[in-house]
């Protein structure tokens, strides 16, 4: 079967990689592109060789099985609702939503409409992180007691620091990946959140750009996580995902994208780390396409997305109230 995939918005840069992944898959086709920014939509249509449909109703009425939504964060909910009403399978960029209420509504809407809703957590497809998960699952480290993690990045610019579009800054942008990875690796839920955050690096932003999140998981597993846009423009790469896990039988650390070649190019005059490891976005999109074909729930669900939203929202609340916020599991 050939899954016909439509793209809804290229506001989030991950859309480029997802669209390119769809193009690479033999059992999927990039059927149509819609974007609420018609200029960007037309440009992407030319780039990816797919028709641009400017009217969202016409786009959803077109012969499209599933959509990948990469809009600004706050627009995820209305777009998911439109797509679900049209019976489309949905892969939504992270964070799934910027409020728990929105996330819950999205999950409920898709369930009611009988469509699959997936959250784009491509890190679950990074070979390094798959290896760590399998070693933990094999019991090599025994019980995991503690973890210290990071998801640092450079400032992405644009709408990411417009709170009415992003719902928050670095804490909103860079908490969910690691929260999802920890749930995926340990099978445990989060019970408590504390956070210190602020606008510390890029003073003119209207959002936070550094968040230090302290978390507790079921059984008392203690976690600290740094969600940031603290990488300078001269830093050799965009950022990182790292985890150090302290277990009963040993310790394992992973720097997920540290499969790199160091490049020193005089034309660039900035050291570059070129990552050569597998394309995790391709793995994500491939599994989504398989779920669309089988008309089953995508492997990383809307509920997975919602769980990460709950932690992120609680982090902002904790930072504001300056005290830990409990989570119900």
């Amino acid at each position: 079967m050939m899954a016909k995939i439509g793209m809804m918005s290229f506001a989030h840069m991950h859309a480029y990689s997802y669209a390119a992944s769809v193009k690479q898959l033999p059992d999927a086709t990039l059927a149509a592109i819609w974007d609420d920014n018609p200029k960007r939509g037309r440009e992407m249509a030319r780039k990816f060789g797919a028709p641009f449909i400017s009217n969202v109703k016409k786009f959803l009425a077109a012969d499209v099985d599933a959509v990948i939504i990469c809009s600004e964060n706050v627009k995820h909910r209305p777009m998911v609702e439109l797509a679900a009403a049209a019976g489309k399978w949905i892969l939504c960029e992270k964070p799934l939503a910027t409020t728990v209420k929105d996330g819950e509504a999205m999950v409920a809407t898709c369930k009611k409409a009988g469509v699959g809703l997936g959250t784009a957590f491509p890190c679950r497809y990074a070979p390094t992180l798959i290896e760590v998960k399998s070693q933990i699952a094999a019991g090599k480290f025994g019980e995991i007691y503690a973890a210290s993690c990071t998801n640092n990045g450079s400032y992405p610019g644009g709408w990411f620091s417009e709170p009415q579009l992003s719902g928050g800054g670095a804490t909103m942008d860079h908490t969910v990946h690691v929260v999802d990875l920890l749930r995926w690796m340990t099978g445990k839920e989060f019970t408590r959140v504390y956070c210190e955050n602020g606008t510390l690096i890029h003073k003119k932003l209207k959002t936070d750009d550094v968040g230090v999140v302290h978390l507790e998981m079921e059984g008392g597993l203690m976690v600290s996580h740094i969600a940031s846009w603290n990488r300078s423009r001269s830093f050799p790469t965009w950022g990182d995902v790292t985890l150090e896990l302290i277990g009963e039988k040993g310790v394992i650390s992973v720097d997920a994208f540290n499969q790199k070649v160091n490049v020193y190019c005089d034309k660039v005059m900035r050291a570059e780390w070129v990552c050569w490891s597998g394309n995790m976005d391709l793995g994500l999109v491939k599994d989504f396409v398989a779920a669309v074909d089988a008309r089953r729930e995508p492997p990383i669900t809307g509920v997975d997305g919602l769980k990460a939203v709950e932690v992120t929202v609680a982090a902002y609340e904790a930072a504001k109230r300056r005290k830990p916020v409990p989570l119900t599991t």
Binding site: E196, N197, L200, V251
Partner: peptide, 26 residues
């Protein structure tokens, strides 16, 4: 016997400082 400590300071200047201490490595 293992110890691991995750500490976050908010400095008076506003700077956030995160310190990780480990006596948990083999």
């Amino acid at each position: 016997v293992l110890d691991y400590s995750l500490v976050t300071f908010r400095m008076k200047s506003g700077v956030i400082a995160h310190v990780i201490g480990t006596w948990a490595h083999p």
